[in-house]
Amino acid sequence: MNTSAKTYILPACVLLLMTLLVATSARAGDKVVYRLKWLRNVSVVGALYAENHGLFKKAGLDVEVKAGGPERDAIRELELGYADFGEASADQVLRARAKGAPVVVIAQLFQVNPLQWMYRPEETRIDALADLRDKVIGVTFGGNDETIMNTLLAEAGLGSGDVRLFSVRYDYTPFYRRQVQLWPVYRNAQAPLIAAQLKKAGEATAFFNPEEFGVKFVANCVVTTERTLKEKPELVKRLLTALLAGWQQALAPENQEAAISTLQKYDPDTPRPTLEEQLKITRGLIQPDAAVAIGTIDEKGWEQTGRIMRTQKQLAGEVDLKAILRPVGGGAE
């Protein structure tokens, strides 16, 4: 064999082998990309559990779970074909539908919105919405918390002069320094970390939950496109069943050890007691009522979210919720 033939035959064989390998792995399971709403932490523990404990594989799926983040938008990725399924909050879905995005909600993960406000009970008492008067309240301008807080203030009949809204960042220093009295946190993820810090300094913490004052703003849901739902209903059902089983198992007290191990894989720095606390709080947010299955879509919550957004002029008109909310019934009881 001459040198030139040798030069071409070896790379061609390697290429053929790689093609065969790729083809074989694609046949092993339907390839699916699932874009999380946030980084790999307790707020997405169900998907992480399903991925790490072979629940997707058992359903015949080869799921690539991709981390989310502030700059990621699952709905855009669905439309651009970078993802097949993803997580998005209700406000994202409503805005997207109002602008013609073909996104549909197939399950609702959080029954209680984890976005709440932390405060020091020895200094502040919030028994009624009127107690917000004269307080310095942290909000992320442009974020959900601003929308929710404006709604609460309107409900309390408080105007912009009655409170001081403070622009928050990822840095909690203004709260630690007592410049701000109420600070927005994700109750299950950030709050146990901050509460642990404050506990070291001998300070107690309490939480102001808007839902307890009648303001419901739906958080993370599982989304896909109308086309995927219509053309691949069986794939949608398989994915959702495996995903919700992941949530079910991750939150089951008897599986706590396995769930914590899964979380530690991605978040080795958070102390174990904090992870246990995060998991416990997440249970109450995902399934506050044992009679309501994980993934159930709270239509009334969606209606209120739509109303809030219209009042705050974030939505121009009505959005047809029937076209958006398409429960598939993943079956996690």
Binding site: I75, R76, E79, L80, R95, A96, K99, G100, A101, P102
Partner: peptide
């Protein structure tokens, strides 16, 4: 070209 909604590109 890709028939994208106003949400992706206005």
């Amino acid at each position: 070209g890709l028939a994208l909604s106003d949400y992706v590109i206005p």
